[in-house]
Design a protein around this nucleic acid. Sequence first.
DNA 1: GTCTATATGGCGATAGAC
DNA 2: GTCTATCGCCATATAGAC
Lengths: 217, 217
Amino acid sequence: MKPTTSDPGPPRRSGRPLRPIATRTLLDIAARVFAERGYDGASLSHIAEQAGLRKASLYHHFPTKEALYEAVMRQLVGDLLRLIHEADLDTGDFATRLDRLGALVIDTFAERPDAARLLVLEMVAGGRYMTGPGAAEVQGTFMVTAAFLAAGMAAGAFREQDPRHLALTIAGLHLYPFAAAGVAGAFLGRGLLEPETIAERKAAVLAHVRALCLPGS
Amino acid sequence: MKPTTSDPGPPRRSGRPLRPIATRTLLDIAARVFAERGYDGASLSHIAEQAGLRKASLYHHFPTKEALYEAVMRQLVGDLLRLIHEADLDTGDFATRLDRLGALVIDTFAERPDAARLLVLEMVAGGRYMTGPGAAEVQGTFMVTAAFLAAGMAAGAFREQDPRHLALTIAGLHLYPFAAAGVAGAFLGRGLLEPETIAERKAAVLAHVRALCLPGS
DNA sequence: GTCTATATGGCGATAGAC
DNA sequence: GTCTATCGCCATATAGAC
């Protein structure tokens, strides 16, 4: 039945690269798949397929699935922290800095839809990265945020309240709708990531954060 | 060391029940495991082990893993919706009803830590249940919330704003800290589910929601 | 740097004894 | 209603050709 000689198999001949792939490209594709299906639900076969190569070829770039995932998370968190540092959040009055930070976060999640999903999946279910290499970064980000809010209160610019719970609340109202973009979009009747919806959401979030922080009008 | 005579294999001899398990107990255990590891990460072996029986025995209670998961989600959503209906949220002025609803949600998540995790995991990653039997319930809950907020605005009790984005924000500030209870507790320096922390969080959330909804002090 | 082919293990699910 | 035993499949990971 089968040609007994060689039968090179279904897809294509072996041999040379044809089209080598950049590790950075691989990371972006893997990030998308991990964000869509979670760590356990994302198979290397599927990631490889999305990247246009074979599962075994992934092992040339990363030694294990865990290592690939950790690289994805490391790059994501690194990008986000760099972004925050580049925006100068130390100038201007407290209300202005509040607006700038909020707009920056919304724009970032709008441009990288996987970011909120990956972060929330990590914090909720996994801790594959956060309980480990990323723990310090996450705790640090919360601490910095709480410190900023406390400073605003001490300066009399923000209403007096528990800065840690305020930080948790602000994180939640930012992260959740983008992490659950599908559900949110269905509720809004229009994709959350469409430009008009993004603009709506940004205006709403800035107003919400102001209402939470600034003294009564 | 061990009685050498029979050595019936690792766990215990075959045969009769010894201790039959209630399906409701099984659902609670499965809910905990699904909440901790996600759908794909939760193996039937592990669920069975937690329940004190063998993997194959689960198939007497549920025909497939999907069916078990759907039963878990159905019970969870049912419990939550029943709870909301039992609390009479149609009496009192708008500010009071806002407080009652907030306190109810916090108390619920405090008592059932898996609830927020499962809901967020569903909305973020899966949609195994929500894109299907549960879609209507979730959308309906958002609609009802938005309608309540809009009614408060029309009555002049709440500040005029987009009720849909306000509903998303309130959902996020409620859900996220409980869904990410581990991260939140590490940041707060004390477990989020300890009674003192719960009381703190409840007071903060009620104040936050009031600040978002009520006109400037 | 990508491929084919394969090793090994855990998964969901089934059969049938007790 | 639970058990032991097993099936078939797909997962991660490895070996080695080109």
